[in-house]
């Protein structure tokens, strides 16, 4: 019984940590620019696919990963510079459409530049499962968990103690006031895209050994990450991570104890439930204004 429960929990935590990492990217961008970036899942795809193909080209893993993350960050910068900035005044609907367009464009490019097959990546420290009270855990899951904690701590420090981080927070609260105080809001927006693209790509590298990677891998992961961000309260980075874990565990428990057929519905039922009954998310942030 306990072993079974633990196994579901491990599965939920691993998947949930991935959703959380992706949700974090949504939160960072939303905070800085009020944009919901539907291309977030594609950053995950770029991270994984670029690493695979750089390694195929003969690069060892660490520089391949570094290059892939840098590449994704560059794509993030391009999207902010030429997608979001040039369309100033496009409004909420317009910005959503631009990022959706970017996600389709990136997926199309990935299929042409790379290919349409699915590819594995080697795990960081092997595939020998660790046994815990009758349940098993892959070492890669521990790496994902560790990365999540490090990133969380890093972001906390960044937002609380660095000048740039503080500027980003100020811009999130009131862009106009921040601008008046000398914060370059445009730079903040670009930085938020670069940061969340890098986070997404890192997630892509970490999950590829478990999930494999392919040109369309970002679609479902992106939507689940989006669910995580909403559940956690849009624009709340810690909430996004917690939201990811909630969604991941809910899915694993549904698959484990109820019916696996309905597992995928869970994330979206949670979205609807949260929106209808607690629009600030489970972990709050007074963002949703009543009209």
């Amino acid at each position: 019984m306990l072993a079974e429960f633990l196994q579901f929990l491990f599965s939920g935590l691993t998947v949930g940590a991935v959703y959380g990492l992706i949700g974090l990217g949504f939160a960072v961008i939303y905070n800085a620019s009020n944009v919901i970036n539907f291309a977030q899942g594609e950053f995950v795809m770029i991270g994984g696919m670029a690493t695979v193909f750089l390694m195929k080209a003969g690069l060892p893993m660490p520089p391949a990963v570094a290059l892939a993350i840098a590449g994704a960050a560059l794509v993030g910068w391009l999207l902010a510079r030429f997608g979001i900035e040039t369309a100033k005044g496009a409004g909420v609907v317009g910005l959503i459409i631009i990022t959706i367009g970017a996600s389709i464009l990136l997926r199309g490019l990935a299929q042409v530049i790379w290919d349409r097959n699915f590819h594995p990546l080697p795990s960081i420290s092997g595939d020998a499962p660790i046994h815990v009270l009758g349940a098993t855990l892959l070492p890669q899951s521990l790496w994902i968990g560790a990365a999540l904690i490090v990133i969380m701590a890093g972001l906390r420090h960044f937002f609380a103690h660095t000048r740039t981080g503080k500027a980003m927070r100020a811009a999130a609260i009131d862009p106009l006031a921040a601008q008046l105080m000398g914060v370059d809001v445009r730079r903040v927006v670009r930085l938020s895209f670069v940061l969340s693209a890098a986070l997404g790509a890192l997630a892509g590298v970490l999950v590829a050994p478990i999930t494999m990677t392919y040109a369309n891998v970002g679609v479902m992961l992106g939507l689940k990450g989006f669910a995580a961000a909403i559940v956690g309260g849009l624009g709340n980075p810690l909430g996004a991570i917690a939201g990811g874990l909630v969604v991941g565990i809910a899915e694993a428990m549904t698959a484990g104890y109820l019916s696996s057929a309905w597992k995928d519905v869970v994330a979206f039922v949670i979205i609807l439930f949260v929106l209808l009954f607690m629009p600030n998310g489970l972990f709050g942030r007074a963002e949703a204004e009543r009209a």
């Binding site: 579901f8 599965s11 999950v207 478990i210 479902m220 694993a252 428990m253 698959a255 597992k263 995928d264």
Partner: peptide, 11 residues
């Protein structure tokens, strides 16, 4: 059963 795009079938 498992869903579309699922990444973990351990449950």
């Amino acid at each position: 059963t498992h869903g579309k795009g699922d990444t973990d079938m351990t449950p």
